[in-house]
Amino acid sequence: MIQPAYCRAMARYNRWQNAQLEELLQPLPQAELRLDRGAFFGSILGTLSHLVWADQMWMSRFADSPRPAGGIADSPEVCASFGAWSAERFRVDGQILTWAEEVGHLDLLGELSWASGSTGEVMNRPMGLCVAHMFNHQTHHRGQIHAMMTAAGLRAPVSDLAFMPEP
């Protein structure tokens, strides 16, 4: 379904997107970042925190790293501040980049099994589908952040994959 080159490209895209968000959001007061804007995870910071939590969860399944604490309902509070988000995002993006550089064709085959907190069931899905989902999930929620930024009159990041700078 997917190839290691896809994983590397999407890991770079993820880091590029998060770096832009960090630059554009860093000047905002904490209250603006925590303001409930009607998104699924409420605020910009809540959505950013959920993404950190979800990426930690997927990497715990792909790379046998520690699972994050709590569940989906707790995820908007994983990062108590923008500074905490920035530090954890940098760490998790590094983990995703390292994993993507090391993943091989055989690693993307077969099935992944995990106990899903959201469904309450043991899930079995193709590994390639799960990896594609992680990257798609990132894009989905960053799109929500983009919309919140635009609605607030803020400059939003360039999100077109075709415009990602070359390495």
Rank of each mutant, 00 (worst) to 15 (best):
Ser43Tyr: 02
Ser43Ile: 03
Ile44Thr: 11
Ile44Pro: 06
Ile44Glu: 04
Leu45Tyr: 06
Leu45Trp: 06
Gly46Tyr: 03
Gly46Asp: 08
Gly46Trp: 03
Leu48Met: 11
Leu48Val: 08
Leu48Ala: 09
Ser49Asn: 07
His50Val: 08
His50Leu: 06
His50Ala: 09
His50Tyr: 08
Leu51Val: 15
Val52His: 02
Val52Cys: 13
Val52Lys: 01
Trp53His: 10
Trp53Val: 09
Ala54Lys: 11
Ala54Phe: 02
Ala54Gly: 10
Ala54Asp: 01
Asp55Met: 06
Gln56Arg: 12
Gln56Cys: 11
Gln56Tyr: 02
Gln56Gly: 07
Met57Asp: 01
Trp58Phe: 15
Trp58Ser: 06
Trp58Pro: 11
Ser60Glu: 01
Ser60Phe: 01
Arg61Tyr: 00
Phe62Cys: 06
Phe62Trp: 08
Phe62Asn: 05
Ala63Glu: 03
Ser65Pro: 00
Pro66Asn: 01
Pro66His: 00
Pro66Thr: 05
Arg67Ser: 07
Arg67Asp: 00
Ala69Gly: 12
Ala69Ser: 12
Ala69Pro: 03
Ala69Ile: 02
Gly70Met: 05
Gly71Ile: 04
Gly71His: 05
Ile72Pro: 01
Ala73Cys: 00
Ala73Pro: 00
Ala73Val: 08
Ser75Ala: 13
Ser75Glu: 05
Pro76Phe: 02
Pro76His: 02
Pro76Trp: 00
Glu77Ile: 00
Val78Arg: 10
Val78Glu: 08
Val78Asn: 00
Val78His: 02
Cys79Thr: 05
Ala80Thr: 04
Ser81Asp: 11
Ser81His: 06
Phe82Tyr: 11
Phe82Met: 09
Phe82Cys: 07
Phe82Pro: 06
Gly83Pro: 07
Ser86Glu: 13
Ala87Asn: 06
Glu88Phe: 01
Arg89Met: 12
Arg89Pro: 09
Phe90Tyr: 08
Phe90Thr: 14
Asp93Phe: 08
Asp93Val: 10
Asp93Ser: 12
Asp93Pro: 14
Asp93Glu: 04
Asp93Asn: 14
Asp93Arg: 14
Gly94Gln: 10
Gln95Gly: 12
Gln95Asp: 11
Gln95Arg: 12
Gln95Ile: 04
Gln95Tyr: 00
Leu97Tyr: 02
Thr98Asp: 13
Trp99Glu: 07
Trp99Gly: 07
Trp99Cys: 05
Ala100Ile: 06
Ala100Thr: 07
Ala100Leu: 07
Glu101Gln: 15
Glu101Pro: 01
Glu101Tyr: 01
Glu102Lys: 15
Gly104Tyr: 03
Gly104Asn: 12
His105Tyr: 08
Leu106Tyr: 10
Leu108Glu: 05
Leu109Ser: 11
Leu109Tyr: 02
Gly110Cys: 10
Glu111Arg: 07
Leu112Val: 05
Ser113Asn: 13
Ser113Leu: 12
Ser113Gln: 15
Ser113Val: 10
Trp114Glu: 04
Trp114Ala: 04
Ala115Tyr: 14
Ala115Lys: 15
Ser118Ala: 14
Ser118Asp: 14
Thr119Gln: 09
Thr119His: 09
Thr119Ala: 10
Gly120Asp: 11
Glu121Asp: 13
Val122Met: 11
Val122Trp: 08
Val122Ser: 13
Asn124Ile: 12
Arg125Val: 14
Arg125Ala: 12
Arg125Lys: 12
Pro126Thr: 04
Met127Gly: 02
Met127Ala: 05
Met127Ser: 03
Gly128Gln: 04
Gly128Val: 01
Leu129Ile: 01
Cys130Trp: 02
Cys130Met: 15
Cys130His: 03
Ala132Gly: 10
Ala132Met: 15
His133Arg: 14
Met134Gln: 07
Phe135Thr: 14
Phe135Ala: 12
